[in-house]
Write a protein that binds this DNA or RNA. Structure first.
Lengths: 244, 244
DNA sequence: CGTGGCCTTGATGTCGGTCAAGCCAAGTGG
DNA sequence: CCACTTGGCTTGACCGACATCAAGGCCACG
């Protein structure tokens, strides 16, 4: 629906002071380059639910996610889709253009998001200019690979309970970067989406969560959840000695 | 069992004429560097079934697979393991050491293999010396990511039949690089291993293959299979419009 | 006030896991 | 050479986890 031209463009912001800069791609590049980056990038904001780009489209820009959560989806003919990754602040998406390939996923905002658009030309420039930039890319790709692998392992070897419990624990760990665990963590995924991530149907997810709430393992309110008993959750995840 | 010192070391070979060189990591580096590479690498051979390295070990070398097939496995406590990738000639394995991490998988030869051992020091050297080397690494990581993603999608959204059929088709496509499809393609995986790849148990794999043989969709003999009716196989893979 | 999403809960079905048994080929040792 | 093991494959009987189908509740929004 939203015309790309209408994508609300934020007032120009300062990369030097970008909250996610140290975590992001440009944590490592030289200060002089940062200026060129700043002039070539374009800050954007999108509401929840909006499609950032679609699988198969020409990948003429990558994006740095400054704030919010995004899902990367691979859709199958036949109404089934699989979420392959969840992105949070500081993550990079849509860089497949560096290989001349179209976007491999459909990216959809799960919350309102703010991001920086990085035109391919800029990335190419950085790649030739600063070897550490390529290194940073390499690190990101490696991390992504590792995440998808653990997803595959869980999909292949774990049962429903275990997968869901493992997800909650992963998700929690992803959200206390500061070491101090926040107990109310945002859960911007619908039951259906949890299912699409974990290879389950809505009803299964719903039942499991209902049961866990009944048993006092977790609470939920207003799009946030609180893990009350991570110990037994972890136990469920590794039931029979399986999974993370 | 095999003492690493006993790993049969082949007579020194010539990288310049390496059959997989163009496909491999060093297709792109300068001829002068190739010499230094040659002096620092170490050709190895292992019989089928041998463990090349184990998850968690210090990753002090990567390997280029010159010939044969290798499985990368992530094992779970509780007797379950998941094959996350199958490697064939020209593939690179064990490069996670570049990030100071231990090996992320256990690598096991499915056939007799020949490979080149690349000490981490050499990789570090190449990384600083030749930017195109890092680019090559990037490409490999990206391809690996893409493969694991399709695995995850299949594990998450497809049923047994569909996954197995899809695997055979992928496997076939991987083996006719020359465009001309060889009809007898090697299948160095046991039923159990097929199960570990596709998230199924031996019995399920066995039953499906037995049925397909009965129905004349495929033949099997001496560790090789022949897909007789790729059309209906493809139909099975995408049953109800799903999967590749 | 009605409509459409999302969630919940129950009833029923089925795919694939589990258990168990037997087959076959390749060792191994007497 | 034969008895015995061992490991992979097959097949059948059974069962359970999860999907499917169906109905109803809750809430936001027009």
């Amino acid at each position: 629906m939203a015309n790309p031209l209408e994508s609300p463009v934020e007032p120009q912001e300062d990369c030097q002071s970008c909250p996610v800069r140290s975590a992001a791609l440009f944590g490592e590049i030289s200060p002089e380059l940062v200026e060129r980056v700043q002039s070539a990038t374009q800050p954007l904001a999108h509401p929840a639910g909006e499609v950032l780009f679609e699988a198969g489209q020409r990948a003429d820009a990558a994006f740095t996610l400054r704030e919010g959560t995004v899902k990367l989806v691979r859709s199958q003919p036949g109404n089934r889709s699989q979420i392959v990754r969840l992105l949070v602040g500081g993550d990079l998406l849509g860089a497949e253009g560096l290989f001349g390939e179209p976007y491999q996923h459909t990216a959809i905002a799960l919350t309102p998001v703010r991001l920086c658009r990085l035109p391919m030309a800029l990335l190419e420039l950085l790649r030739t200019e600063d070897p550490r930039f390529t290194d940073a890319l390499l690190g990101r790709w490696r991390r992504a690979l590792s995440e998808v692998e653990t997803l595959a392992v869980e999909l292949g070897t774990c049962k429903a309970e275990e997968r869901l419990a493992a997800f909650f624990l992963h998700w929690q760990r992803k959200h206390d970067k500061h070491g101090d665990s926040v107990d109310w963590l945002p859960l911007p995924l619908s039951r259906t989406e949890l299912g699409e991530l974990l290879g389950l149907r809505v009803e299964t997810v719903s039942r499991l969560m209902a049961r866990w709430k009944r048993e006092g393992l977790l609470k939920e309110a207003g799009g946030k959840i609180q893990l009350l008993d991570t110990a037994t959750l972890h136990g469920t995840a590794t039931d029979e000695g399986l999974c993370t």
